[in-house]
Design a protein around this nucleic acid. Sequence first.
DNA 1: TATTGTTATACTCTATAACTATA
DNA 2: TATAGTTATAGAGTATAACAATA
Lengths: 161, 161
Amino acid sequence: MAARKSPARPIEPALSPVDGLAQLSFTVLGMLERRAAKHDLSLSQTRLLGVLRDRRPTMQELARLLGLDKSSVTGLVDRAERRGLVTRVASTADRRAVEVHLTDAGRSLATAGATDFAADVTALLELLAPADRRALSELINRLLLAHAAEHGVDLFATMAV
Amino acid sequence: MAARKSPARPIEPALSPVDGLAQLSFTVLGMLERRAAKHDLSLSQTRLLGVLRDRRPTMQELARLLGLDKSSVTGLVDRAERRGLVTRVASTADRRAVEVHLTDAGRSLATAGATDFAADVTALLELLAPADRRALSELINRLLLAHAAEHGVDLFATMAV
DNA sequence: TATTGTTATACTCTATAACTATA
DNA sequence: TATAGTTATAGAGTATAACAATA
């Protein structure tokens, strides 16, 4: 029961800005997790597939992209490989290194997962009026750009899922 | 370096609404996780302490609040108890049940964690101009209220951390 | 010597199933 | 019988340290 035509100040009780942002984040990540679970994927496996959609990194690059230790990536890739979602391919340039490639099955799953998740988030955003929705996206973009700039990060480099 | 006085259409490259919301969620949860790690707390332990700040639930209620199986909660509480953050107190009403209480140490840690996290999120929000910040919070509140209403959930019941 | 990746090991987190003790 | 909680067990995910192969 949202307030219909309340003016500037909302009648509803309001979450603090901090709590609101935290709650929103939990909600969105929860959606991602539930969708992934439908495909028998953990959040970690989902991130792995997401990262591999447009890259063929070595184990070490993968570790950096995911922010994990290389030994953790060994296990992550082991389990994905056992399921036929990725393959290890010997690097031609460096005989110590291996590249991790998405298989067709892995790519299908990554695409399906991304589509499902996008549907969830779109449905969430459609709870807002179109003008509000556009405003929210614009503000989020502004915030993320400022944050990325402050940390010297390329906002578009690590996007996955 | 956000665009200073760009009109309606931003000059910067923009993330799609879905990607923006996903990225923002990862950013915020990442902050929470890093702050928790500074106190040697996992996200699960942080949620546990957060939930206990204003409740003394039984194990079963805790399982429901955290969305976990009761056996998972046994382990979670075991580890927290071993660290002196919570205690198990026999229920007077039902001799099968135990209540989980925060210790003073646990409460301190929960408070410190919440304060740190709030500082991080506040710093993030302060990357926006004050008017933008207020607008963003207002839109997030609207979105969460609509979402809570749709799912028949009390938005304020499960807030933790 | 330094780097790439794996292995050995340990711990947290989670779930299912079986169990104990109440109710 | 049903419920509250624990235990036994299994597996994912993570990290540190030690190792083999290659650079």
